[in-house]
Amino acid sequence: MLVPLFTYDLSGSTVLRLSMSSPRSSPTLCSYSTVNAKDAKTIILISVLCCGCRGSPDLVILIAMTNSLQIDTVSVQFAGLRALDAVSLTLQRGEIVGLIGPNGSGKTTLINAITGYVPLTNGQIYVSGRRISGLPPHRIAHHGIRRTFQTIRLFKQLTTLENVEAAAVAAGQSRRAASKLAHATLERLALSDRARQTAESLPYGEQRRLEIARALVTAPPFLLLDEPAAGLNESESDSLLNILIGIVRADGCGLLIIDHDMRLIMRLCDRLHVLNYGRTIAEGDPASVRANPDVIAAYLGGRR
């Protein structure tokens, strides 16, 4: 039996199949394709087999991490209220996108819609070309999307370690691998000392960090954070975000972040997406968004 040395979500990666007439000739490309989640394991197997046969003329090359989360004209209707109206947004791996807008503009609803927490009225959501909208929340999670909530939602009666382990186990890791990953993640977020304490006994700032540890443990390709620094003071939120950025850059995950702290958002994000009354009113780099008259009007009031 083959025991994988590591597990990694390869969906969306590109596979190149090269053929060589002899072991010393230069390879020629015979086909390429995008890996979907179902095939990801098969591909690993093929590449392992190919590497196993010495002098095999065929090479399989995986180009990983090209996936994106694509939100395509998504609308969400609550009874009489159109909470989201034809919002489109693409999140690439490795980039940090700030989702901003006044209260009630639909930011949290968008995250709820992506994660299958609220149903879409219209539109589709894809991860690397595969439709995830309409799937139950746990299947969406298996496509590598993790979120946190604005209010802390830890498993209160579980220990710090178990909170993170539960997330790894839920993502399909074995018990042993989950424990190992959880310990490593707690280390990264400076929570190792708290491993055996129940989540509810942690101070507020550490509960916030634990939420992020739980979301990060399996190095998900996409991370959606709903006000991760809410309730933290300036130095706490700075240190949290520094840890966060380090991890995001190291793991190459795509981060969609909601926050009201403009100073922080401007400093952190590669791109901003602005919502107002459920519609996209601006998107682009932080400087141009800040100068956009519609954005200023939405925040400060006034005619558009």
């Binding site: 927490y117 999670a141 830890l154 579980l158 178990e162 909170n163 539960a166 839920a170 989950a178």
Partner: peptide, 16 residues
């Protein structure tokens, strides 16, 4: 562990 997580916060467990 899944059961205990779900017992604590079912929705969150599903989202994970």
């Amino acid at each position: 562990i899944g059961l205990r997580a779900a017992a604590d916060d079912f929705t969150m467990a599903c989202l994970l």
